[in-house]
Nucleic acid binder design. Structure first.
Lengths: 94, 94
DNA sequence: CCGATATATTACTATATATTAATATATCAA
DNA sequence: TTGATATATTAATATATAGTAATATATCGG
């Protein structure tokens, strides 16, 4: 892996290496959800969740579409789900 | 995933979410290596590499053994390799 | 346009992580 | 014990990330 690739990969990993962001991803695993639902699902403040969502969108982990007043987020990079399972199965027995 | 698990997973991810640390892991993919070799392999200063190695050891990603004057590091958590491949295959085509 | 609901942005402070240079410790052979 | 090689630690600063509160913008029905 060359340095540039390493930086890209590190960037993607950093994008999800956060407890709340992991939970957001998990919550979006099966289907898209609007911000409202995501906030409920992970249980924080709206503005914080919005920041996290935006950050992950910037890094290409999530994508979104607006439908009227609501904005629906979904997982743009399916590998993060695999990744989540991968690392999850390791951490369980710790 | 509950909050505690999310924190553990985030911790492991943070441990590898760094360009140099990713390259270290890659360099240890097939066999253990002494610090010297690792420094050569990733091309930084010895003390920095040592810090990274220690950090990853602390977080359970790596393990090491001393043999005389040399210290050999190896991957302690095989899932990080899978993880690397997972995310690597995504980032390639970007 | 106005009010209501949904989402995003800003500005600020706190905390964590990275970087760098210098120095310390460990092991062994002579 | 001394010198040489290998590795680890410390201390200081820079930079990035997180957390918080307040406010702004967007969409739409009426």
């Amino acid at each position: 892996m060359n340095k540039k690739t390493a930086e890209k990969v590190a960037n993607t990993l950093k994008a999800i290496a956060h407890p709340v962001r992991l939970r957001i991803i998990e919550c979006l695993e099966n289907d898209e959800k609007c911000v409202n639902k995501i906030v409920e699902c992970v249980g924080g403040k709206q503005s914080i969740t919005s920041q996290q969502l935006n950050m992950m969108k910037d890094k290409g982990v999530l994508a979104c579409r607006r439908d009227g007043v609501k904005v629906y987020y979904r997982i743009a990079n399916p590998n993060v789900i695999k990744l989540l399972h991968c690392i999850g199965s390791h951490c369980k027995n710790k």
